[in-house]
Design a protein around this nucleic acid. Structure first.
Lengths: 191, 191
DNA sequence: TTTGTTTCTTAATCTAGATTAATTTTTTCC
DNA sequence: GGAAAAAATTAATCTAGATTAAGAAACAAA
């Protein structure tokens, strides 16, 4: 099953077989049932996760006790709490399965060692981060300029398959509004 | 003056002198008066910019004609429209000087060539992008969870020097609300 | 098939922040 | 140093979306 990650890497870069093998060997499997956590608020996030199957979400719980979903991740996405991972600080986010899931993980020390020596794997992560940056910037632009209803419509148009996979209250949280409001929007659309 | 960029790179990585020199040689200067543009909406963003001096902002103009500031950049920050730069698509953003500024720029072709061969410069850009990702994620979390007033207070606390450098209507735009509302907040604080 | 648990909906009320419009203050630059 | 442009303030009104509170579906487990 590590082939899935291997193929993902080879879509972007062409590392020497030995680099690739070292990297894949450093990755270990973890299986999660729906609602199981990889990281809880307050813990140190020690790994980067590559999602082989399923769906994860990262979220925090605000002072009112409301869950705010910051990111989703699905098949072939990397996910971590990058702030906690890079700066080795306690995580303000939880990472939890939103479906039964299988991930590959690598810890910081191993990853750092590999990235000290491999040009192509540095390129790989640089390219992934560029894509992530593009996505974050688009998201920020949408948040600035669109109403809740527009956000929802555009998100559904761009991710028609994904919206079926998670409960609506999670979508609402990710898009930055309440489930009640999402319900109102959906009510409007039907007529 | 390219030493400023050189020092910035050496803070994070240790490339061989030849890589570093090739890279620095590929960078060229550009000087901007306040309000001059590097990129206008519709153009292709062909460069990454490293700010030596001054302040730039990237923004779009929405359908109502209102400017929405997406990013600021100051000394020792990289700035570009990464979407347009990576995907070679027309820019939806403008990049414009918010002060008289001096930047170093490099075009995509040269940068790609250098990044094909230099491990350490890949590491450099990967590390920069990790930092940017951390900042973007924090920003998204703030946007989700804070009122306009809280956003403004936290921003001022974290960037006391910067808030002095740009007009308040730009801050308001960057924080996602109107100048009138910012004025109201400031009015409240005085009493 | 029933009981509990999760998710979704509806409706009334409330509020942060937008909008509009006018005025004042500050900055720029001839 | 004075006119024009740019930036900031104030106040009245308006609205998208939050909050609160119930109830209705949907789903899961036993």
């Amino acid at each position: 099953m590590k082939d899935q990650l291997k193929n993902h890497i080879l879509k972007f870069v062409s590392p020497p077989e030995s680099d690739l093998q070292t990297f894949l060997d450093a990755m270990t499997f973890e299986t999660l049932k729906n609602k199981e956590s990889l990281i809880k608020q307050g813990q140190y996030c020690k790994h980067q996760y590559f999602i082989l199957k399923g769906c994860l979400r990262s979220f925090f719980v605000n002072e009112k006790g409301v869950e705010k979903i910051v990111n989703f991740g699905i098949e072939n996405w990397w996910l971590t709490n990058i702030d906690s991972f890079i700066n080795q600080t306690p995580s303000k986010l939880n990472i939890q399965a939103a479906e039964d899931s299988i991930v590959l993980k690598i810890n910081k020390q191993k990853l750092d060692t590999i990235l000290k020596d491999s040009l192509e794997l540095n390129r790989y992560f640089r390219i992934i981060l560029e894509k992530v940056r593009i996505a974050d910037q688009r998201r920020i632009q949408f948040m600035y300029n669109l109403s809740g209803e527009e956000l929802y419509n555009i998100f559904c148009k761009h991710n028609p398959d994904f919206v079926q996979r998670v409960p609506q209250y999670m979508l609402a949280s990710y898009l930055g509004f309440t489930p009640e409001f999402l319900s109102k929007i959906r009510g409007r659309k039907k007529m």
